[in-house]
Amino acid sequence: MIQNAIGFVSLWAIPAFLVGIPLYGVCRGVKVYESFVEGAKEGFQVGVRIIPYLVAILIAVGMLRGAGAIDLLAHWLDPVLSRVGMPAEILALAIMRPLSGSGSLGIVTELVKTHGPDSFIARLAATAYASTETTFYVLAVYFGAVGIKKARHAVLAGLFADLVSLIAALIICRLVFGP
């Protein structure tokens, strides 16, 4: 039932936008083709404008991963965090999540495979992955698109939300699925 509903939404949401917006436009007397082309022009500029910001963030994250720093940090933090009930397997995922979307997706897929999709670890990993976004990537792309170099408090607020989502995922999964 739920799965069918999800399938329906992900199948029809984009076509609904694609036909709905121009249809509304026509009804309001907009020259839809001309408007579309006019707006689409910006796409190229935005794509090019974010390149330097993406390069800066992705090389830093890539170097950290290449150096094995994420595993090392997970190793150091493990004795502290296992005391509050954070499984060691989840720790590397938690550190990777704000830095790299593809990296953390790889970790989740691996955990699901080794522990089985109906295990506590897999469910916790899936919840932790899906309940937040790749903060540094979002930061680079969104601020890069409008040339923002001074992020002010955005980094701290974003990372704080990441931490809260991890703790929330742990507590909620413990309550719902039990370890």
Partner: peptide, 14 residues
Amino acid sequence: MALWMGLMKIAEDS
């Protein structure tokens, strides 16, 4: 990006 920027322009103009 061009696709959604184009659609957004229609959404804005309308």
